[in-house]
Design a protein around this nucleic acid. Structure first.
Lengths: 253, 253
DNA sequence: GCCTATTTGTTCGTATGTATC
DNA sequence: CGATACATACGAACAAATAGG
């Protein structure tokens, strides 16, 4: 891996003020945040190693770690053991509307969209799901778990359920195209719209954290939606988990 | 202190299975969750004291505490030292649409809505806010911090900003009515609609946790919205913080 | 596969100022 | 005033992950 050229905004020694009552770690955190806000550090850039920052600010490495820690916990930085600490991308504004398509949103933001099928299996519909999709409980459904990325960074993971006699082979089509829209087209469904959307939030579990390349416990936005075809027939029940650090939802009115 | 009548769903001894490889605390947690899901424990009910549960399941009280701990952290239960552990209310389905009114949503769910003014002050508009509201930077605004409750339980806290020459006395009107809608009416604005909505999520800070009667670190849904009058003129910029444990957002299409 | 350098992650211990009772 | 708790900061060492040769 060719490391990105570490853009160092200012190599001069910027000693912290030890008399103004502001904790050293906070001054350092504010300094790094200002570097990001004012473009001296850009998304994807590597922050100088902790040891270098400690020297530059004239403090112990622990103090730098604390500053970096609060910025990581606020989602501005991402630290990876052995690699370094990097500036996170701005949260992507993700429209929630009747016709939102992941790939359109991401490419519209000038980023490269990709979708990966993690696994697919046949499951019986439980009572809640059957009611939502207008099926009889126990009816056979296809369940796909997918991960969606922008420029390689996972933004969301989704559990998609489609009724089975109608959409046989959906998993194969999704796997080859990486797009829900195209998989539906391959199954003969040209268009679909979102009928209902519910939004909640909770911390990520270990499995979800792994799929999204997050630390467990980071916050997820949970979006439950039902999509219907042109005739109003439900064709898809989806639970999408978005990293709250990486997207911001925009409601279209 | 008058404790609610402790509704005990099933006093029979339900010993945990110690051979199936599922941890005892998880079996107990699943059992309590099933009691809630299947109506044997209802919102507001007191869960049996830890000691009683420990006896019933044939485990140590520590094991019960772990089970309760995970349910508390998932927002299904609320434990208060000295009082007991209680079942939390179902998350309230809160519609996000062009004409959402807090009081209508809450009373429509059969609960009693109330709004409290925490503080109000005059502030100059910063650049971002001025752009959003169509003002010149530095223009005077009224900033209100409010808390909104359903049946006495805080659901959200909001920071409301209105342009000042136009809505002088807004804070007084809000304080006496407890309703944003009525305060606008008292200022001569009969109607307004939501122009833009952005949703994100983050952990609560200490101040917000206090206002919402939450533990710091619990998850908040952050909703930034701009409201406009009938002429399309922006009249209000609001940041609402909802407890993710107590509401679920429903997007109206 | 192995070795090494780099970098973050973790855990000891120590010291100091500040707020609270 | 002393006692205590807490946040802050420094020092040293080692563990663990990654990248490159």
């Amino acid at each position: 891996m060719t490391a990105e050229p570490a853009a160092q905004p200012d190599e001069r020694r910027r000693v912290v003020n030890r008399t103004d009552g502001v904790a050293a770690w906070r001054q350092i955190a504010d300094g790094i945040e200002a570097d990001i806000a004012e473009g001296r550090l850009n998304p994807g850039d590597q922050v100088a190693p902790e040891a270098r920052l400690a020297e530059r600010f004239g403090v112990n490495r622990h103090t730098v770690r604390r500053a970096i820690g609060v910025l990581v916990s606020r989602g501005l930085l991402r630290a990876t053991q052995g690699r370094g600490t990097f500036v996170e991308a701005e949260p992507l504004a993700y429209p929630i509307g009747p016709r939102t398509r992941f790939s359109e949103v991401v490419t519209g933001a000038g980023r490269e969209a990709s979708g990966e099928l993690i696994r697919a299996r046949e499951v019986p519909a439980d009572m809640i799901l059957a009611a939502a999709l207008g099926l009889t409980p126990g009816a056979s459904m296809l369940e796909l778990v997918t991960v969606h990325r922008a420029d390689g960074t996972p933004l969301s993971t989704a559990t998609v359920r489609v009724p089975l006699p109608r959409f046989a082979g959906f998993d194969r089509h999704y796997s080859s195209t990486g797009s829900i829209t195209k998989a539906f087209q391959s199954c003969g469904l040209a268009d679909y719209t979102r009928a209902s959307t519910r939004i909640s939030a909770r911390p990520s579990g270990p499995e979800e954290a792994r799929l999204l390349d997050l630390k467990p416990g980071r916050i997820l936005l949970v979006i439950d939606s039902i999509n219907v075809d042109a005739a109003g027939q439900p064709v898809q029940a989806t639970r999408s988990l978005f990293s709250a650090d990486r997207v911001e939802l925009v409601v279209e009115s």
